[in-house]
Amino acid sequence: MENELKQLIIDTLDLEDISVSDIDSHAALFNDGLGLDSIDALELGLAIRKKYNVKIDVEKEDVVKIFFSVSTLAEYMQAARS
């Protein structure tokens, strides 16, 4: 799941020079980590909804925690899909 999400992040956000192995599952995705921003977060949310049919509700969920890293996102996705 983590590698699948990494590939989705790379494809969705046009991270041309980055490969799956370059992304640390536990590193921060936004700001200091991969350097993604709020538009990327929205784009990623849309891609996840399209591919996995999982809608992350910004009103009810703690999106900062969910999108913190690939690992936290994968954990949320697995719980949401089961």
Binding site: I39, D40, L42, E43, L46, K50
Partner: peptide, 9 residues
């Protein structure tokens, strides 16, 4: 299709 936030921005 849904609107891409990046393309919109």
């Amino acid at each position: 299709e849904e609107v891409s936030p990046t393309v919109f921005s």
